[in-house]
Design a protein around this nucleic acid. Structure first.
Lengths: 221, 221
DNA sequence: GACTTGTATTTTGAATACAATATTCAATAT
DNA sequence: ATATTGAATATTGTATTCAAAATACAAGTC
């Protein structure tokens, strides 16, 4: 029997499924920041009992996406500027590490995939296709992260960026900033191809810092 | 009424309490790595029902202290060398950030408390009081972290160091390494007093790297 | 009318009950 | 003797029930 090719039957528990679905809804803004999450309503929505839902809520609270107050239920976490200020230095540090580790481990194949994604992303930029741009952008960052070969790092980044991703609804990217971001990505690609870990690390960190600055500027108005 | 001085009546939920107690037991090694955690047994141990226990388990799994396999229950995570190798670069990066942020925010009062702790720690070293040393050592690191004024950073560090703390049972610190660690702490104190963020950051990172190296060496035998 | 105070309703926390899956172990076949 | 099958048992996943706390609201007071 071809044991290696057998894909295990996906059997998820309800609470795992709920974690994924709720997380998605929160990140996509379907559940608004500050919104009260009534157990009753959500149970009705997904047609599950409160037990698996409550288990899922504990996980989401740990990820920082919701807030649980004893005897008072759950609300979707609000995303304030100070939350961003808090998260960004950490994300920056993690980006730097992932850059260093990625350079140490990345394969030629991954690099060429990155080049392809980069090209597509630039095309999206030229066509002013923001949604397509964001998608490629995320894929590139994910590629770097995965190349770092560190599951814990991936998990932490995912958790933080999940919290912060909602910020894209907070501020619109200016045209200059967009162009600048693309330019930064050119350098990021270059450093990766050279497998220059420290450089890639600092580029990624700077890239993130610039992003925060632009959000801050856009909110200051 | 003196509203500011009223301490809220501490009312914790059972699952919160369980999270704390189980975490403590795992970190202290009372629950051995690899040990199966039977819901029935633990419920009996704490005299609670399965509902709050299961909620607590989800949180501990998220912290990486236990592993949950659907329909097969929970086991205490094992701590392998490769887990350490994975965690340390992240912890290093977080240490570096906390050093930078701490220098920006630390008060004179906190610095003098740090000096006091440092002195006590050196005394413990001279008296070969390892337990006392560890205690002060931890307090110093916690002080730096708290000074960074970043709750998310604190939480992430706590989570990672919780996983890794068990490593102290894996390897005994050599006498040279101990002396070296104390010397490193001298520099850490100095950089803090000078409020030299980048320096403190790199010292903390190096301090951690050395620790990992010593664990690795000690395990290599 | 604004503010208490007490009661009804709703919501959450925890325990129990039931269902699904895994494990154990004896009986059977190889 | 070892391996395999299937029933018995145990354990986990989910639903339901019960209890405690919070909220909503109405009646009474100033």
């Amino acid at each position: 029997m071809s044991l290696n090719t057998v894909i295990p039957i996906p059997r998820r528990t309800l609470h795992d499924e709920l974690v994924d679905r709720l997380r998605h809804m929160i990140i996509e803004g379907e559940l608004a920041p500050g919104e009260k999450l009534s157990e009753k309503d959500i149970c009705a929505l997904f047609d599950v009992s409160r037990t698996p839902l409550r288990e899922a809520m504990k996980v989401l609270a740990k990820e920082g996406l919701i807030q649980l107050i004893p005897n008072r239920g759950a609300t979707v976490s609000k995303l304030t500027m100070s939350d961003l200020e808090e998260a960004f230095p950490i994300m920056g540090a993690l980006e730097a590490v992932s850059g260093e580790l990625a350079c140490a481990n990345i394969t030629d194949q991954e690099i060429s995939r990155m080049e392809r994604l980069h090209k597509d992303m630039v095309d999206c930029f030229k066509a002013r296709d923001m949604s397509g741009y964001f998608q490629r952008n995320e894929q590139i960052h994910k590629l770097i992260l995965d190349a770092a070969q560190n599951p814990t790092l991936v998990e932490m980044q995912r958790s933080l960026s999940g919290r912060v991703r909602r910020a894209r609804y907070m501020a619109n990217m200016s045209d200059e900033r967009w162009a600048q971001a693309v330019a930064e990505h050119e350098e990021i690609l270059k450093a990766t191809k050279e497998r220059n870990g420290p450089l890639l690390g600092s580029l990624l960190k700077a890239h993130l810092a610039n992003k925060l600055a632009s959000v801050r500027a856009s909110l200051a108005e």
